[in-house]
């Protein structure tokens, strides 16, 4: 199962994702550079990792969303390819229009770096199909701009389509309706502020549950 991990200038979780997926086993991992425009059709998953792409200039993820490889990623996603954006990757997905809404400055104005609890809202996605709905995951967050904003009208669409995947139990950044992670209507694009790759070893292994779900989903596909 071929997985591509994109490095933008300023990405700093690309190696962590690589390491975490490698230890999870069964994946063939390739690192991709933001300026390249490779053919993505033989990939099973594209990862947009966390970090501070382009130094968070203008808005977090704004510049990365317009980088050459993102045209390929958008094409890939529109054809149904699986794409996950973690933290800065989530911001890039929103900036590129692959996910609705936007991420703004945390209400507290603080950069928040701590372990938090999220509720898994649905098992009906490739990302959570082996995780029980309403269960809790312990995952770390580390961001200054993680306040997810969406209009009430668009939020009702998310609910109708089962697109809200993760919600904060103790809303640390002031996100609309505690949203910590969501997917597109088709469920193949997933963005989340918490870092599953940082919860795959000693402290918490809950991040691995997302990779396991993914593996199970991809296994059914092939």
């Amino acid at each position: 199962m071929k997985i591509g991990i994109i490095t933008f200038p300023g990405s700093n979780c690309d190696d962590d994702v690589y390491d975490s997926l490698m230890r999870s086993g069964g994946f063939e991992l390739t690192k991709l550079w933001h300026k390249d425009t490779p053919e993505l059709s033989d990939y099973k998953l594209i990862v947009l990792p966390g970090g501070f792409s382009y130094g968070d200039y203008l808005r977090c993820g704004a510049m990365a969303a317009r980088s050459p490889i993102m045209e390929k990623v958008i094409e890939f996603a529109k054809r149904g390819g699986l794409v996950i954006g973690i933290c800065n990757g989530f911001q890039i997905l929103c900036e590129s229009g692959l996910l609705p809404g936007a991420l703004a400055r945390n209400l507290s104005l603080n950069f928040i770096c701590k372990d938090i609890k999220v509720t898994v809202e649905t098992s009906k996605t490739p990302w959570t199909q082996t995780i029980e709905a309403r269960s809790t995951l312990n995952l770390p967050i580390a961001h200054g701009e993680g306040r997810y904003i969406i209009s009430e009208e668009d939020y009702q669409e998310l609910i109708k389509n089962g697109q809200v995947v993760l919600t904060y139990q103790d809303n640390p950044n002031g996100s609309t309706h505690q949203i910590a992670g969501l997917c597109n209507k088709e469920k193949n694009v997933f963005g989340l502020m918490p870092h599953p790759e940082r919860a795959s070893d000693l402290r918490s292994k809950d991040g691995l549950k997302i990779w396991q779900s993914l593996k199970s989903f991809l296994g059914q596909q092939s």
């Binding site: 808005r59 704004a62 929103c94 936007a102 703004a104």
Partner: peptide, 8 residues
């Protein structure tokens, strides 16, 4: 297209 995010 870039300088403002129309969502927010």
């Amino acid at each position: 297209k870039l300088l403002a995010n129309p969502v927010i």
